[in-house]
C-alpha cells in the first residue's frame, strides 16, 4: 500500500492522478519527508513547463479576476504542515497527519465528574449527515451564527484539517468548524474538551467529519478555561479523555 502511494510521486506532480489518489498521496506526504522534499522541487520543474507557455491573456481577464476577488473572502492561515503546493483545489485536501504535528502541545487531560460541569449543552454534527431534521439543522446553524457573529467573537486556529474555533464569552459558547479533517479511527469519534487551569478536562460534544467537514458547538462558561482540546473517543464520547489530544488550542 505505502509502496503504491510512494509510486504516485511522478503522476501527482503532473496532475495525472484521480481525486482519490491525490488525497491518498497527500496523506502520505504528511508522513514522508523524502516525498515532501521531492514534491517541493519537482513542482518547480512543472512551473518551468508552465512558465514557458506564457502568452498574453485576453484583456477581459484582468477585470473579471479583480471583480471577483473584490467579493471573495480569503481563508485564514491553517496549521497545515505539508507543502502548501499540495493544498490546491478542487481536490483541496489539506491533509494533516495527526501523528506528525510539529506544533502539537502535550496536555495531560484529567477528567472530572460530569456532575461538576459548567457545561450546559453541546452538539456536534458532521455537516449534512448527522442532523437529518432540517428544522433542527437550521436552529443549529442559527445558534452557530449567533456565536460566530457575536461582538466579542474570537477566532483561533484549530489543528484538525483546516479548522478554526470561535468563542464568545458573551454567548457563553464555543464553536469548532473546519474542512479537510481526517476521519477518526474505526469506532471512534472526535470529542471537544475544555481544559481548565488545574488540568482538568470538561467533556464537550462529539462529532464526526462528513467528507472532511465538521461543526460542533458547546455552551459553557469560560471561567478558568485555559485551552480547548480534541481527542478521539469511543463512539458516544467519554466522561474523561481516554487518549492524548490530537489538537489543542490555548486561549
Amino acid at each position: 500500500m505505502s509502496e503504491d502511494v510512494h509510486a504516485l510521486l511522478g503522476p501527482y506532480i503532473v496532475g495525472a492522478v484521480s481525486d482519490e489518489e491525490c488525497a491518498d498521496f497527500e496523506a502520505h506526504l504528511a508522513t514522508c519527508s523524502s516525498c515532501t522534499e521531492d514534491v517541493a522541487n519537482l513542482l518547480e520543474v512543472t512551473a518551468v513547463l508552465g512558465e514557458a507557455e506564457a502568452v498574453a491573456p485576453p484583456l477581459s481577464l484582468r477585470a473579471r479576476v479583480m471583480d471577483e476577488i473584490a467579493v471573495t473572502a480569503q481563508v485564514t492561515p491553517t496549521a497545515t504542515p505539508i507543502a502548501a503546493t499540495a493544498t490546491v483545489a478542487p481536490a483541496d485536501a489539506t491533509v494533516t497527519a495527526l501523528a506528525d504535528h510539529p506544533r502539537r502541545r502535550r496536555f495531560t487531560l484529567i477528567g472530572v465528574a460530569a456532575a461538576s460541569l459548567l457545561v450546559l449543552a453541546g452538539v456536534g454534527i458532521g455537516i449534512g449527515s448527522a442532523v437529518q431534521d432540517r428544522q433542527q439543522q437550521l436552529a443549529f446553524e442559527k445558534d452557530v451564527m449567533m456565536v460566530t457573529s457575536a461582538p466579542d467573537a474570537h477566532a483561533m486556529d484549530l489543528e484538525l484539517g483546516s479548522a478554526h474555533l470561535v468563542m464568545s464569552e458573551r454567548m457563553d459558547a464555543v464553536v469548532v468548524m473546519g474542512d479537510d479533517a481526517p476521519m477518526p479511527h474505526d469506532g471512534m469519534e472526535y470529542q471537544l474538551w475544555l481544559v481548565m487551569d488545574d488540568g482538568k478536562a470538561m467533556p464537550g460534544p462529539t462529532f464526526m467529519p462528513d467528507d472532511g467537514s465538521f461543526m460542533a458547538m458547546m455552551h459553557a462558561g469560560f471561567d478558568g478555561v485555559v485551552a480547548f482540546a480534541i481527542t478521539e473517543e469511543p463512539h458516544g464520547g467519554s466522561e474523561a479523555p481516554t487518549s492524548d489530544p490530537i489538537a489543542v488550542t490555548e486561549i
Binding site: 517541493a40 480569503q74 503546493t85 490546491v88
Partner: peptide
C-alpha cells in the same frame, strides 16, 4: 487570492504554487 494564506514559502516558490 482565496487560499493565499495556505502558501508556505519554505515549501516551494509562489510561482510553482
Amino acid at each position: 487570492w482565496r487560499t493565499a494564506a495556505r502558501f508556505r514559502p519554505d515549501a516551494g516558490s509562489a510561482r510553482a504554487w
